[in-house]
Design a protein around this nucleic acid. Structure first.
Ligand SMILES: [Mn+2]
Ligand SMILES: [Mn+2]
Ligand SMILES: [Mn+2]
Ligand SMILES: [Mn+2]
Lengths: 231, 231
DNA sequence: CTAATAATTTAGGTTCGCCTAAATCCGCGA
DNA sequence: TCGCGGATTTAGGCGAACCTAAATTATTAG
């Protein structure tokens, strides 16, 4: 009798659920609905329910789950999610900086490898990279203790007035889109000016000191987060 | 009805079976018995039979399997096994050369990662390393086309006469043993002299120009392969 | 040539992560 | 307050990759 080991200790799937909950619950740590998890993970809603029940019922649960009321990460779950996120972003940085990957390819590779590297690997690439604080998309890399500064950036889609900004980060979700942004010169750290717009306008911005105006699709704009420039 | 996809296309498990068959069938490509596969993979013999039946029955089989008569890799299976072996040894070299892993730790990490890296990753680390031909244990890294020069080394356990050799390779199988060998100065490329011995003697060798004699256990000797020095 | 021993396969069962179809629940608009 | 539609859960199943115990087959010593 193999003394039934702790179910759901961790696995690629579990890790991905935890990371998705972390992302979807946002800085305010809202409860996350199964449907949104299902959409994000590309699985059926029933599969989500199943997994959440299992995770929530384990001896030391990784999530706090209540029927019909969504989930939250438990402290242990949050710790694990941040660890995987740290792996993800360190790997991305490593691929970009040391292996010269094109930026739009780092995400997919990191998405797999994040689950399989050892603590030693994590530590070694972090050291090699000089303990970076940001990944190539401009996202913050959680520290080893799970601490991560709150982000105070806004989505370009939420800016309606004219203003001067710096690109904080770009979404890594959609590789082709990311490639297009790169081709247009939009990358973290780039200075960017917005113009006043009404809901019907497209997103018109100019970069650096150039006066050339770029017109961005809503998709593209949605992938860009900005910081104001009053340093 | 989701149009039943090619079963056993490839997976971590399948890869490990193929690699094990490649290793156990040796340069002469002997048929491999389920028992030896079971022992090497650390699974029950019944599990091996199961897997071999599945692999052998697939539309384009990765192995040629005959009840009660062991398996052989098919050309496709051999190709895949060599690809995974190439991954393994490139990753080991990468961890050793670029991430400063201690030699006894590279194997375990490579054993996992070999299944999850992309072609791009493979190509990039190979380039970064200058397309190495040997891994840190002295094992040959298969080329991209799967070609690999025949090894013409002998196990230290098969040497009974006095002679001058160069250490060709050390086994990566047993990390503690590997660490001990390292501590004793035994590594690929090191010059090593054997003395005449009878089956009851231990393995007595001296390294480089030193006259100091090392006495090796059968385990240690079994982990060392030698080349003669007539260059 | 036979019989026992060793190797191998078959039978039956588990866990994980997923799916579809069929309930069920819940909040909101009339 | 009622009931409807969307969100969610339940029920029933599947394939991978394992396992143990019980056949079965091969080999080999006498
Ligand atoms: Mn992932
Ligand atoms: Mn990123
Ligand atoms: Mn492996
Ligand atoms: Mn090796």
């Amino acid at each position: 009798m193999p003394a039934r080991r702790n179910p759901a200790a961790s696995s690629e799937s579990v890790d991905n659920y935890l990371k998705a909950i972390l992302a979807l619950s946002g800085p305010e740590e809202r409860r996350v609905a199964s449907t949104s998890l299902a959409a994000r993970l590309g699985v059926a809603p029933a599969s989500v329910t199943n997994m959440l029940q299992k995770l929530g019922a384990a001896p030391s649960p990784l999530v706090e789950y209540e029927r019909h009321h969504g989930v939250l990460l438990s402290p242990a779950g949050r710790r694990r999610a941040l660890e995987v996120l740290r792996h993800h972003r360190l790997i991305e940085t490593f691929l970009y900086e040391l292996l010269d990957y094109p930026i739009e390819e780092v995400h997919a590779e990191a998405e797999r490898l994040e689950h399989f590297i050892s603590e030693r690997f994590e530590e070694r690439i972090a050291a090699k990279l000089g303990h970076p604080k940001f990944d190539p998309h401009g996202h913050c890399i959680p520290a080893m203790d799970g601490k991560m500064p709150k982000q105070k950036s806004v989505s370009l889609t939420d800016v309606e007035h004219e203003g001067a900004f710096v690109v904080d980060s770009v979404s890594d979700w959609d590789a082709p889109l990311l490639k297009r942004l790169k081709a247009r010169g939009i990358a973290p750290g780039v200075r960017l000016r917005t113009r006043r717009r009404t809901p019907d306008d497209d997103y018109a911005v100019s970069l650096g000191n150039s006066s050339r105006i770029l017109h961005l699709s809503p998709d593209a704009a949605g992938a860009i987060r900005l910081c104001s420039v009053h340093h």
